[in-house]
Design a protein around this nucleic acid. Sequence first.
DNA 1: AGGGCAACCTGGGGGC
DNA 2: TGCCCCCAGGTTGCCC
Length: 280
Amino acid sequence: MLGRTIESVEVLHPRPVRRHLPGAEDFASRLTGRVFTDARRRGKYLWLPLDSGDALLGHLGMSGQLLVQPQDAPDERHLRVRFRLAASEAGPPLELRFVDQRMFGGLSFSPAGAEVPAELTHIARDPLDPEFDDTVFVGRVRRSTSGIKRILLNQTMISGVGNIYADEALWLARLHGDRRGDRLRAVQVRDVLDAARTVMTAALGQGGTSFDALYVNVNGQSGYFDRSLEVYGREGEPCSRCGTPIRRVSFMNRSSFFCPTCQPPPRGAGGGPARGAGRG
DNA sequence: AGGGCAACCTGGGGGC
DNA sequence: TGCCCCCAGGTTGCCC
């Protein structure tokens, strides 16, 4: 895609460009004629800098895909936005396609956003970013009364960690997600940070986690890190370290998976074994 | 401050 | 077969 001129932009569904307030036509006209110069990301946001110094900003949400396709590829069922890209010395014309079933994600035009879009100022760096500051993160965690899983999912504290990798990192670090940040030792916070890096690096090496065809790279290929998951989606299966059945609990309108032996819940918190009186 | 929860959406799968 | 409920990799914002 890099170095190619956007010949036209076709918005097939208005919802994915809803964050571009001037509307779909304005979105298309601002991008038409521009050239993609780079592809960057911060956490789960990505942006494509343009020769104008602006950027195309995007987030895949739960089900989004950004695909690079030949012109004659049949339209995907949930194709929402099509960018027709001119031929270049690199090859024949291409299309960049935003495909999204649930449309929680979206695209927008970020004025002067080539370096870092202003919309991302609240998003922390991710743990694989060379400029991520471990010491600052450890300090912030240890001043927070929130549970460590909630902190890992808080994109203003650390970005790029989602529900799967948070659970996997906590298992690796032998920490229960309800453990409060301010009750963790610095070495425990560093351990969970290292664990997140380990899990995310391994997942990237296997092309990501793909439970179904929704989760693919720009070439439409699935990753296979799901085969390496230790706890996520494995309720009732034995922990590979100790054999205890993995548990699933409801958390933030979703699920958390953990080993109740390797990752004991904090004392005094709900969910742990009640001392004295039973639970009815 | 921070925990709980609804909202934003579509679709797949299981139970009945 | 069909309907209903639950589930899903994210983020925001409101209420308490």
